[in-house]
Design a protein around this nucleic acid. Structure first.
Length: 160
DNA sequence: GCCAACGTTGGC
DNA sequence: GCCAACGTTGGC
């Protein structure tokens, strides 16, 4: 599909891993808890059903891309923002003024072997990738089609 | 646990 | 609107 965009979503596997996603009903989950405006705006303005998602484990050993998913629902209010006691509670958010949004994603593929950060750094096709930029912290970041395809290719090679 | 990089907050 | 202080992220 032309117009398909590609994204990388970060998660700490201790809080939500790709294996957790695999056990969700329909292998689908809402991507709640994003509390960064730039990340939110990507979801709100540019993410569409069918977009490709690289699933990244941060604060992991090793940090790695561990699989792929698809966007199956476009941005809608993140209700956890006004749930008192939720780790991502935001007193300024409410059903009338949600502030924060989320999308739904569905698992596509769990890589048999994760592609670690160090391997990503050595791939010529990935030079300049946002994830590899020093100090990159965005939890929702755009990925070039060429980068996405290069990573799929790396995952396939690992299988041989 | 350290710390660099980055975002947010709030005084002025 | 500046910017210092503070909190968070995330690799190591």
């Amino acid at each position: 599909m032309s117009g398909t965009k590609y994204w990388l979503l970060k998660t700490e596997p201790e809080s939500f891993s790709i294996d957790d996603l695999a056990t969700c009903p329909e292998q689908t989950t809402c991507w709640d808890g994003v509390r960064n405006y730039q990340a939110r705006n990507f979801m709100r303005d540019e993410m569409h059903v069918g977009d490709g998602v690289l699933f990244y484990h941060s604060n992991a050993n090793p940090p790695a891309i561990v699989g792929t998913a698809r966007v199956v629902r476009e941005a809608y209010p993140d209700h956890t923002a006004w749930q008192r006691g939720d780790p991502h509670f935001d007193a300024k958010a409410s059903p009338e003024n949600p502030i924060w949004l989320m999308v739904d994603i569905q698992l596509e593929k769990v890589f048999r072997e994760p592609i670690g950060l160090d391997q990503l750094r050595t791939a010529p096709a990935l030079v300049g990738m946002e994830l590899l930029r020093r100090g990159s912290r965005l939890s929702v970041q755009p990925v070039k089609k060429s980068e996405y395809e290069a990573i799929i290719k790396l995952a396939r090679q690992k299988h041989r």
